[in-house]
Design a protein around this nucleic acid. Structure first.
Lengths: 245, 245
DNA sequence: CGCACACTTGAACCCCCTCAACCCAAGTGG
DNA sequence: CCACTTGGGTTGAGGGGGTTCAAGTGTGCG
């Protein structure tokens, strides 16, 4: 497969898939010059995954790197008895497989139809050697993820259920800019996914949503469509601003 | 200051502090050739911090990078109301300040007398440009930390108090190899630090230690000195091995 | 229509937190 | 030398936030 199956394959796209990639500017690929895009395209294999497909399995040999070009992907870890912790929801432009060990440190599942570019470890190594800017950009990316992970630790270790849900909503709002009107959010993940992300249960997430609705902090257009009505109050709850009073 | 104050300054150390640095091989500095160590040494400023000193403040402008050469440092984040989440205990060889934003994403406090090498952002930038291997090593380091952060998210989001304490003990055992006899651990941090690391309270940590003692999983030589007696059982608890039975 | 699945809501329980007392070792100063 | 203080750690009793268990409510899709 050289192109996303949902689009008609045109000659230019076959010869210059990366140049026409909408995700390029949002991803690490953006640091590669137009002139060198051929190198990138030669190493990339485009794949499409349906909702529910797990395409990275924690513990498997880490043979490939992935770059998400469309859709939203859930990253998670499991305990032997099945308890799940979602470590992140990532979308277009996100680079996966940074775990440098020989095995993947987490699993990845498409929570809606998703497209990814796959690079083999070997090709990636070559690309990194030839384009130092790529490595620089990857380091930058890794640092941002590290900061986000630390923020999530603070959430999981020290915030209450209400604070966690408020933080999640604001975090998701910030990430999914422009996809919807002003403060209306589309949540592609299930309540179970949200619960596993926030270290809560489905019921607690649902109850907290309902409580926020009663308190006029938000409105639930549908289970997946949330309109934030009082972002200031949510930010206060999330611990982003101090109550200074 | 060009040298650790506790040691007599010798000529060689002044001219070649990095070459004599015991932490070099354990840190990112290890990738710099002997011949280039002068470059490294010229950029480094050695500083010593006493127990309790906070030398990185979350939110402050991120002007410097640090490399720990001795001692143990606690990394943490705070909520406006004072709740604290410890994101890690790091020791000799650890590189700090990877947060690429213009402000630090966390605070750092020495929990025992510690020595660090400080590099300015500008010097670091120059070093990275001149030594690609350094950037490569930093990326590697960042990936390891990312994997550790994800593991900690699993702990904070989904493990019970007993599982958290067991995970902590085994994790600390793995990190502090060779410092003590077989399975005797020195815990330089207080119960409060451990609690803030595990998302628990002091009392719960203390009670869990006592419970493990009653169950012959460990012995408490003193509050800071723990001897693990049944690592297999602890590993089972920590979720490292499946009960397969 | 009717099944399946996700979500919501209610009631009871429990693990961990809160509050409080106590222990103990290490100063500190008269 | 001892009285007093201080800080960290332990232990107990009671309470609460979130879980568990269970039932009910949509809602999309064959």
């Amino acid at each position: 497969m050289h192109q996303v199956p949902t689009r008609p394959i045109v000659i230019d796209a076959v010869h210059d898939p990366c140049g026409r990639c909408g995700a390029r500017q949002r991803s690490v690929c953006g640091v590669i010059d137009e002139a060198d895009l051929g190198r990138l395209a030669a190493a990339a294999v485009v794949r499409r995954f349906e909702k529910g497909e797990v395409f990275i399995h924690e513990g498997d040999p880490a043979t490939d790197f992935f770059n998400i070009t469309a859709g939203v992907v859930k990253l998670f870890k499991l305990l032997p008895d099945g308890r799940q912790q979602v470590t992140g929801f990532v979308g277009t432009g996100h680079f996966l497989g940074l775990a440098v060990h020989d095995t993947y440190a987490f699993s990845a599942e498409a929570i809606e139809p998703a497209c990814v570019c796959r690079f083999s470890r070997r090709d990636m190594r070559t690309l990194l050697d030839d384009f130092p800017a790529l490595e620089h950009r990857l380091l930058e990316t890794a640092c941002h993820e590290l900061a986000a992970a630390q923020e999530q630790m603070l959430l999981l270790g020290r915030k209450t259920a209400r604070e966690r849900v408020a933080s999640f909503l604001l975090g998701w709002k910030r990430r999914s800019t422009g996809c919807c009107a002003a403060s209306t959010l589309h949540l592609p993940m299930t309540r179970a996914d949200i619960a596993d992300y926030l270290g809560l249960t489905i019921e607690t997430v649902s109850r907290t949503f309902s409580a926020f609705r009663r308190e006029k902090l938000l409105e639930l257009r549908s289970a997946q469509l949330v309109e934030l009505r009082d972002c200031a109050a949510l930010e206060m709850l999330a611990g982003l601003i101090s109550p200074h009073a």
